[in-house]
Design a protein around this nucleic acid. Sequence first.
DNA 1: GCCGTTTTCGGCCCGACTGTTTTCAGTCG
Length: 577
Amino acid sequence: MAFLNKKEVASILEDIGILLELKGENPFKTRAYFNAARTISGLTSDLTDLVESGGIGNIKGIGKALAEKITTLVTTGKLEYYENLKSEFPPTIFELFGIPGLGPKKIKKLFDTLGITSLTELEYACNENRLVDLEGFGAKTQDNILKGISIRKKFSEKFHFPLARNAAEDIHKHVNRSKGIKRSEIAGSLRRKKEIIGDIDILVSAAKKDAENIMKNFVTAPDIEQVVAEGKTKSSIILKTGINVDIRVVADKEFPFALHYFTGSKEHNVHMRRIANEQGYKLNEYGLFRESDNARVSCSEEKDIFVKLGLEYIPPELREDTGEIAAAEKGTLPNLIEETDLRGTFHCHTTYSDGANSLEEMLQAAQSRKWEYLGIADHSQSAQYARGLSKADITRQRKEIDALNKNYGSCRLLHGIESDILADGSLDYDENTLEIFDFVVVSVHSRFKMTEAEMTKRIIRAIKNKYTTILGHPTGRLLLSRDGYNIDLVQVIDAAADYGKAIEINSHPYRLDLDWKMVKYAKEKGVTICINPDAHNTDGLDDVRYGIGIARKGWLEAGDVLNTKSLTGVLQYLGIS
DNA sequence: GCCGTTTTCGGCCCGACTGTTTTCAGTCG
């Protein structure tokens, strides 16, 4: 019997890390907790099993002390060490982390000397001018903290991918108009195709004489809320949308190294630097240096850095320190799927339910994308909020699809449905009706608040249904606004593997569900993945590009994905002609 | 805290910018 799941254990380990930082503990010790939190949250094997078998201590980065603490947490739900640490600080102290310029040391100082325990108290103290005389603080610091609090109140700290990408492209264009730019690129989590973006990183190479002008141009870009830092090689601004943008200007020979460094992730970089050290090099954002004589190893492209370290080139999407470096050492990195590999897609809505475009308009849009097939999956009858299809609607839709397929040669419409998974795990039509469809996507749209055991059972029952083709948005999460329902994804993926069913990567930028961390697990279990746009209009079809990003982050190759198959291959897969 | 073909101690990635200091600690990525 487990008292805490992975997510909860990881969250406690992270809290411990923060509390240890506050206490001024050895930074390597705190890092051990943060690393362990990351490791635990990324585990695909069952945590309870690992604890019971003692295998938990064999995981890299989890030694004797952490293994004991994790075991205690899983088996009892409590940890005295954590409770004691927590009792030293009020819980609201966590609010203070994330204000720019405020780290553990300063927060501790504020707590010890002024008794500040929350954001409100901090703002009050700033307005009372109480920070200026504090050792290590001053008028400037106090002012910046106030600005930070005001920005925190106004904006969220994270952004959906498209919003961040559009902002990044705008500022990138603006910067590129500066004189003397040699190379430039958008780096950071955007380049790694993360589902949520915290800030934008722009990298530029130029001669030294041009750097100052480029910086000036950057900090005077339109729509800037605040210039946070302005230096010769590094500056930082906050846009009116609340997004933070960092820029680095380096010499052109440093560009590949800076690009690698600036793309991250931080964990990947740390690991790469360790690999470099082991081979007698030092790696930083300016170059790769031989430790014996400090000689620079020249690399003209980012790819060369990996080659020099005896690694395969690691595509940015994989740089999360989740095994990509070991695979690159062994030469076993996947040949990642590309957007051009897609030959069609499934799960699209039309005016029959809550879509904005007709069947014919969707078909034309698919044709213009050179797709061989388009799977229509409107909502099912119980989804009344979305005008779910009655049996009469289904008959009518079938007729129209058959007629369109006769008139349009190059792209075939496939007639599917997005059937609600009812509370008991059954589907939303009788067997005679389900029989009609070319494919069936099954999704949860109601009764989100079940226990994990109930929800898992419900979804697995739907997976087992013989009419089910694809499990749609498996957690139901809405990024930045709604957590997914409680579900044991490992069990769900195992069931999909056992029953030969596909799982969707819902490509809508607010969903991106299945999460890439689990995509990799699904691939390992041999589950077919389907990259679906969940399009509600013709433009929505382009969302598959976000799904591709997630598929790549999940190590997928073209062969792992259903909709890279030709029409013939798909018809064969679906068992229709 | 973790780790080890240099193994039970002594390392642990590395550098820029800010604001406070008067040579550097703290923060950030």
